[in-house]
Design a protein around this nucleic acid. Structure first.
Lengths: 215, 215, 215, 215
DNA sequence: AATGAATGAGCCTTCATTCAT
DNA sequence: GATGAATGAAGGCTCATTCAT
């Protein structure tokens, strides 16, 4: 029997896993409560409704994501190139690391891709925006002053898109690549590639300024 | 009243829209048939079951995607740079053009992201793979001979990731960017950016060969 | 393709088989019409409704039963013992012979055992009663004058019960007896047994009169 | 309002009645649950499915039949004639007594006559066989040693057939006999007739041995 | 505080029947 | 005269939710 110091928390964890795996609609409360070894009514008792339980799992996932794999912060003077590399690595780590419960990120990615109506746009805002702005700060230091905001946004999107691809296309990549090659798509290797790819691109787009000074 | 020369086709179209919007589970047949102005039993009459109707919409979507916005082919001698540009443009067009029913691509992207069990992996294979191999051919011409396959795959993924980002992140981009800026994310502009970004990156990664000859 | 000089008759035959096999409720019109190679609407076109088609098959079955295996008639002077034997043989033949379509009797037995509401009690009357009265005539000759009607009825029921048992219990007998023994339950053998059994019983019940004279 | 100490049992009883009356196909769950004063979903809640509820009613009916009207057992030395009489009486009692719920036997007879596919042949075996073997034991004592098994089977079938006739032909007998005479077909009277009829027949078939000793 | 029994709305599907042709 | 398409009522079943305990 699983220790149940906090039954509500236990229920939340089990529900989170199920929702992350199969989505809201395909998961029913009986399945959740049985897997949790609890009563069918416990969902409504603790959370009021299935809907509210779902929102709670999403909020919890966001908190845990941030806590377990925080985005980096730097002291003054760290070169923008290095910061970019660490940003990419952190982002990839969030998506791919396997030494922590994976349902957090799966659930969030699911919610970002297709927010439930009446859902948590506010939360998405508060979760995604800081990360994107962190990247914008780095890019500002990698590009000449006066580079239009829109250009920064496009470059940012290019970098984020590359990273997220390894989440979104995981099913397809398994089919396109050999099992062996798929196995080698590890965080280190991907960080290295995306960093070099993006840095080369940025230097090519904005030839002047190639040395990143502190912010 | 909608013209109903072919009621089965009409039903397929309405169902496709619904499935693309809300997914299989969240869409019920009553909703589909009411929207189509047809009887509840018509789904089972024409397609046998909701499941089979769904599969049919996916197959139809794939056919139409390919037919309406085919990937480009080139004659001998077209420079690889130009081919890359046209590849990116075609890909973006598939994802973003608004002058054709959008449910085709939405449904396919949904199925790629999360294939239904017992679903159409075969189809995905046959739909995604050629596109990716077309890109690989271009990249082979843009990189020095002897460039490892794995490198080509990584570069390919970087390009595809950038493009797909504007599909996957459409909800988030709406929140991150101003409405005005979001509006400006048109095919032309994005093609231009991704092309220049990627080409710069490739040249930077593989400095020698910068001129793409015919294949 | 089956010859369809009379499509209505063809439909009736196919329906009769299905109804006899699986009963009214478990048989649906699509199944019937498909087996008949005809249109779904043909049932309603030719017979008005499934219900009416059913009644028609029962009526047809009764006519054919009577026509194919008529109950015997005798000239003056045939001994009652012989008439009893031939009665039993005819009855068993109706139930067990396999060289004619079996659905007629199956359907009738089904209807007798459990008449459909609004069904054909009238018909049953007209079908069963003559047969039972034929038997009563024989028994009157086998028993002393003045034997109460009720006794004749009981004896008649005993004989009919024995015969019908091989229809009603066919499923169970298959389980109770060896396959070999079950195979041997042929009309001749059963006639012989039931006749001797019943005759012995009658003589034992009514010791005086053991010689059957003509009526 | 019916007492509902055990709602599951109550549902079983109501369902049993309906199934016995109209058969599985013609009975729908709404009808059952309404008659039981319960919710439509209660069938699936308590029994999983309509099919499983049906099987449960059959099993219950078999248990109750055996329990309420058990077949007799005898000590050493009871004459075979007496045992035959009591066997017939018990059998008739099972079929005709009206002081206990009648759906038990109706349902069983229905299942015996036409077992549902995937049904309970095993059960039939275990229910019918012992009864038939009990009779065989009696007949062995009523017939000379060396009487072939097949003869015993035929005699047994003749006896069982007579008894069952009053169940199978109940609808027809109502039409053939006057209401008054039909009313008089009581257990005592029928036992007496079938016993004397059969005993006379056996003695006539096997003239030697007429005294039944204990087994 | 937490449960197990029980509910009713809603789902997909089947079916006899109808209607335009 | 006969069909094939289409219908709507009804069926069994699932599910989130409720309620007495």
């Amino acid at each position: 029997m699983i220790l149940m110091d906090d039954p509500k928390q236990h229920l939340l964890n089990v529900a989170g896993q199920k929702f992350a795996e199969k989505g809201f609609d395909a998961t029913n409360v009986r399945e959740i409560t049985e897997a949790a070894g609890m009563n069918v009514a416990s969902v409504n008792y603790h959370f009021g409704s299935k809907e509210e339980l779902y929102l709670e799992t999403v909020r919890h996932a966001a908190r845990m994501c941030e806590q377990i794999t925080p985005m980096p912060t730097w002291e003054e003077g760290v070169p923008a190139e290095q910061r970019l590399r660490e940003y990419i690595r952190s982002f990839l780590t969030r998506l791919l690391r396997e030494d922590v419960p994976t349902w957090h990120r799966k659930l969030i990615m699911r919610e970002v891709a297709e927010p439930r109506p009446g859902g948590c746009e506010v939360f998405v805002h508060s979760f995604v925006k800081p990360s994107f702005e962190l990247l914008q700060g780095i890019l500002r230091d990698l590009t000449p002053p006066g580079t239009p905001l829109e250009t920064l946004h496009l470059i940012g999107s290019s970098i984020v898109g590359q990273v997220l691809h390894y989440h979104h296309a995981r099913n397809v990549l398994k089919l396109l690549f050999s099992a062996e090659e798929f196995q080698r798509l590890q965080i280190d290797r991907l960080t290295d590639h995306i960093w070099r790819f993006s840095l080369g691109a940025i230097r090519s787009l904005c030839p002047r300024k190639s040395k990143g000074e502190g912010r």
